[in-house]
Design a protein around this nucleic acid. Structure first.
Lengths: 193, 193
DNA sequence: ACCTGAACACCGTTCAAGT
DNA sequence: ACCTGAACACCGTTCAAGT
């Protein structure tokens, strides 16, 4: 990448993060280009679709999240590992409002620039879920898609300003439902404080 | 209302239902006016905001849902009544994709044309929840807002084509989490078939 | 009273020119 | 190679005319 191109790219990412964090994933791309002092068509060539921009915005943090899943796989308690990771995943999607809807549709859209990132996320969760199922602490009728769906559902709740202040409690309600009765009764990670 | 006005109004509602059921709540209003063979500005005067249109589209079915809540309040089992009503509520929001997000924001926006309808819905659920709590079968730390949030979360899952085929299972997972362990173990309404 | 088109400021898509 | 403005077809908002 040429030097001026690289500078444009990085300035765009910086501004895009600010604007999207403030206004959500449907923020005006034209507005982002204006605030970044970059030509409108330049943004479109760096990021041919909205999904491509979001993918680049999420890349680093997504990598951190999947790394965290790998670490947690080696931890002592399969149920606690899953709960801790779920909390991280919900915090991850909380950064940009509307991102869960975009990710959910990208999961089934092979052509989306976000697709492979979403598959990665699902796989990371699925591994932790399967470990908990083998340990007989998580419901056996759930799979990686369901985990993704529940993270999305909690992310949706966090997106609604009217519900956001209850999202900690609702996290513990929904996350707790993934486990078999009593299996996580002694896990402080599920208490709501 | 003048005769021609009334005819326009009803034609608009008819077409709007079709288009919104197909494309979701963000469907083009201009397109609806075109398909209804009605002047564009005419739609805007009948429905000054998108929320006003949706409110009229939902009114009948919402009334049915609140009536159902009243009936269920007189039924034998408080827990079963709540589960049955929750299923109806999720089916209600399933008709228009994106409606849960619009309703969630209307719940805190007193100016929205949908506001009072949303409050009605929350109240109907809250009454059934409180009855179940008094009977010691539902978690005591949840309130009407939480119930609305969980209905919205399940509605969001139903909106995503990739997750919709799991929504029955996920309903039983999330709805089951509202109750105290074992309180609904014998309720066929929570089985996933 | 009610209906209607048109002007306006936005959006994302596409493309032909610039350096 | 990369950047850029402009034309295009849409959107919702507003308003001045029509019958």
């Amino acid at each position: 990448m040429r030097a001026d191109a690289k500078q444009n790219y990085e300035q765009l990412l910086l501004v895009a993060h600010e604007v999207v964090a403030e206004q959500g994933v449907e923020a005006s791309l034209r507005d982002i280009a204006r605030r970044a002092n970059v030509g409108w068509a330049t943004l479109l060539r760096h990021f041919p679709t909205r999904e491509a921009l979001l993918d680049d915005l999420l890349k680093e943090r997504l990598h951190t999240l999947t790394l965290s899943a790998s670490m947690l796989e080696a931890s002592e308690s399969p149920s606690q590992a899953l709960v801790i990771w779920l909390r991280q995943a919900v915090a991850f999607v909380d950064v940009y409002s509307g991102i869960v809807t975009m990710m959910a549709s990208s999961l089934s859209d092979t052509e989306s620039a976000l697709h492979s990132s979403c598959v990665e996320l699902r796989k990371a969760g699925a591994r932790l879920l399967e470990r908990a199922q083998l340990a007989k602490v998580a419901r056996n009728d759930l799979n990686g898609e369901d985990l993704f769906a529940l993270i999305g559902a909690l992310g949706w709740i966090g997106d609604q300003s009217h519900f956001a202040h209850r999202s900690n409690l609702l996290f513990s309600v929904v996350a707790g439902a993934i486990f078999i009765d009593g299996a996580v009764a002694d896990h402080p990670a599920l208490s709501d404080t």
